[in-house]
Design a protein around this nucleic acid. Structure first.
Lengths: 259, 259
DNA sequence: TCAATCAGGGTTGTATGATAACACGACAAG
DNA sequence: CTTGTCGTGTTATCATACAACCCTGATTGA
């Protein structure tokens, strides 16, 4: 009876294993949309767990929109587009190219967000950004407090867009990127990096303060390129995400008050 | 005992009600990160359900990263940044401004995706786009087949970026936008719209074929502006998401083969 | 005094059986 | 052909029991 699923003792709950197992069947196409899943009883016996565990797994998949179930009928695989949540599973996150791809996506979001923020920011937004910058100045580079204020700055920029989804998506992607960095474990820190990073942030803030959309996106592009090289990524990667690049941003950044 | 919740609130399961109830407590700050949840037994009695139902709710919240639990200790509220899934709850989706905000986010993604796709597309990607366009040509405007191919086109563009997250995010956001449109229920269709929409898609494809990043993003911007006005949104909204606007895209689009 | 050990209660994780609600097909009655 | 009933299978929920684990505090030994 107690089969413990030989694999991992470190393993999470049995319901998680069952859920990801079913999830994999769906992802790999062995269970197509509309197909009926085996009965809970059958799943329980095939996995060697209790029906309760199977139900917890089912509940989880149902909440993710991957399957739907009806009392008296059974459980069925839902259409892929019906997924109500966006999730990046842990295994994929570990792969090397995931990091690069996530970073690219993040850059895409951030550069646009910076431009939008420059046109819509309020005084309270500026206040929040400056507060986050102050927090970064007083915390040692790479510390928890530093990271918290770093994320706080970017979130403040996102919230200045007056579009709550911007912040929601950006924070989500940024956290995945951070997880990926931690998984790779290849970061080295120096005092130079702290100064450089702070300077990049300040340039972003200056442009946003001035209402300079192109300058803000340009500054953000440079910041992301710097961050990329800081974590060991070819720096010029965010290029395609930079809208105002070849054009005359110097003109846009000239003659504007630093505030 | 427990209110059956007359409105069809996303699922008649008790575990769903319990999960959203706890989730609300967290969202409204009555349960702060680090706080310990009541014991499963206590939750069961307060909600008037069995401990099994509570466990299904807990499993769901745990899979979303909202709480974490350890055997023998209890369940605790996790940091907000630890959420492993991105979810847009149904209530927020119904609000009027959600539609506008989601559409803006989608535009932001798509315009950049189009530019990237133009520089990275393969022959197979072009093939997929053309196939989707053919599907749109033969299906009546607004039909299920039409919508399916429409989404297929945009997904093909996203997949041409060689970054799987692009497609993942885009499809997710697009589906939420579609849900929001359906919830509002204010779309009217005509033959003109079909032709216009098809033309916009064709221009996008032409630019991507030619490897013209700026042309692709410009065409996508125009398409999104058209789509916005088609669903009753002020058309100029995607402006900030348009990188190549004032600059000379005519020059970029000149002298390139239509394919 | 101090440290290690151990026993006990509390909590989550899992197993098991039972009951209620519901869907669907078979089948008989009209 | 239609309708109503019933039996079977499935999910939804309940209830209980045990196992695994954490924490605390008392006991024990030096």
């Amino acid at each position: 009876m107690t089969l413990k699923l030989d694999k991992v003792n470190r393993g999470p709950h049995l319901s998680t294993l069952v859920a990801s197992s079913i999830s994999r069947e769906i992802a790999q196409g062995r269970l197509k949309p509309g197909d009926q899943l085996p009965t809970e009883q059958a799943l329980a016996t095939t996995f060697g767990v209790s029906r309760n565990v199977v139900r917890e797994a089912i509940a989880r998949l149902r909440s993710e929109g991957r399957i739907w179930s009806q009392q008296g009928r059974g459980a069925f695989v839902a259409d892929a587009t019906n997924a109500t949540v966006l999730t990046i599973d842990y295994e994929t996150l570990q792969r090397a190219d995931s990091f690069r791809n996530l970073f690219e996506l993040r850059g895409m979001l951030e550069v646009q967000i910076a431009a939008l923020a420059a046109t819509r920011r309020s005084d309270a937004d500026i206040e929040a950004m400056e507060q986050a910058l102050d927090g970064m100045r007083t915390a040692p580079y790479g510390s928890v407090a530093w990271l918290k204020n770093d994320l706080g700055f970017h979130r403040a920029v996102a919230e200045a867009t007056r579009n709550p989804y911007m912040g929601q998506f950006l924070v989500f992607v940024s956290e995945r990127v951070r997880e990926s960095i931690l998984a790779a474990g290849n970061q080295q820190k120096s005092d130079d990096m702290a100064r450089t990073t702070l300077g990049e942030h300040e340039r972003i803030l200056t442009a946003i303060k001035a209402g300079d959309a192109k300058g803000a996106s340009a500054a953000m592009t440079r910041h992301l390129a710097g961050a990329a090289s800081r974590v060991g990524l070819p720096g010029g990667d965010a290029e395609a995400a930079s809208p105002a690049r070849h054009s005359r941003l110097r003109k846009a950044m000239r003659g504007r008050a630093a505030g």
